[in-house]
Amino acid sequence: MKKEPRSFLPDPADLRWLVRSLDLRSFSAAAREMDVAVSVVARGVDRLEAGYGVRLLRRSTHGLSATPEGAELAQEARALLAQLEDIGASLSDQRSRVAGTLRLASSQEICEALVLPHLADLQARYPALRVELLADDRVADLVTEGIDVALRTTVGLSDLVVARALGRFERRLYAAPGYLEQHGTPADPSDLQQHHTVTHTAQGLAMTWAFRNAQGKPLEVTVRSRLAASSSALVHHALVGGAGIGMLSAPLAAADVAQGRLVEVLAPFASRTVHTLYAVSSPGRRNAARVKAVIDFLVKASKDRWALAPVR
């Protein structure tokens, strides 16, 4: 920020107006959500801009967007508002009550497979809980983005997060029956170099896939993708549509395999590498009632209703 931060003490309500206006890209949408007049939201943001002496929002026909200073303040405001909410809960009878807003981040595919099917049950169990779903394949920063719970297949630095395992799974190769009828079924991993492959853009143009040969020894094959997509969900949809052969998490492909939309490819050569899906939170939020309740709920949902494919 351009001015010294201690020269201005913002009202938390104004910070909330800023954050929600950016999330919804509209003053009017934020006002409807909070059941206040649009002028209340706009004046709150005006006070922040006047207090800090910088422009925080860009206004256009496409909606609101943050300036660099606005994006910085919004990140800090999310963390501060979450802390204030936790303090309020700890000083009231809400300590053991699941209430407030919970921000949950995951990839779109895991969100669709694990969270959305059980969201109605979660909301029925905790009617005072408000959930914000952030579906993105990138690894979100728990603190600066105000994330309460993130679903990840990698944890990162263990001293910076608190992780609870939801399930174990393998990643395997799949293709649509129609693709295999047209292009043939590979009999050996080396055959993949003659096939159309679908990968994630994060993996680059050339991707190395791991296998095990007939003797159980590690084997790697580098393929050049004919199609790359920016999310695992898009890769999944492309495979079902017959775009080629690609790698998916086995539990997320299970329904399509059962219904004949996908077929596992090169199963005898699968690497059998085991991955773990975690529910991750920051140490400062793990004791919040809403965080503990949602993680407990996800553990039960993944165990009882989201069938993780057995590890062979």
Rank of each mutant, 00 (worst) to 15 (best):
L234H: 11
G244K: 00
S231Y: 00
L192M: 12
L166V: 05
R261T: 01
P177V: 07
L239K: 00
A233L: 15
T197G: 14
F211I: 12
Q259D: 15
T276W: 00
S282Y: 03
A250K: 02
A258Q: 15
Q259R: 14
G242C: 06
A238Q: 06
R226P: 07
A176F: 02
G242I: 01
A289Y: 00
L173C: 07
S271D: 14
L262P: 13
H237V: 10
R261W: 01
T201W: 07
R290W: 06
P177Y: 08
A255W: 05
R172I: 04
V235S: 04
R171Q: 13
A250M: 03
V198I: 06
A270L: 01
F169D: 08
L227C: 07
T222F: 05
R164F: 03
L227K: 08
G204S: 06
A253S: 01
V235N: 02
L180T: 00
H200M: 11
E181S: 14
L173H: 02
F211Q: 11
Q203H: 12
P189S: 08
G242T: 01
Y278M: 02
A288G: 13
A228I: 07
A254T: 13
V265C: 10
N287P: 05
F169V: 09
G241T: 04
R171F: 05
Y174Q: 06
A267D: 09
G241W: 02
Q259V: 02
H195K: 14
T208F: 06
R226G: 15
V257H: 03
P251L: 01
L205F: 09
E264A: 12
L227A: 15
Y278H: 15
V240C: 11
V198M: 06
Q215R: 14
G178I: 03
S230T: 13
W209Q: 13
P218S: 05
E220L: 11
S271E: 08
P251S: 00
T222C: 09
A250L: 00
L239V: 03
H236W: 01
H196R: 15
S271H: 11
R226S: 15
L205N: 08
P283V: 03
T185M: 12
V263I: 08
R171I: 07
E170P: 06
V274Y: 09
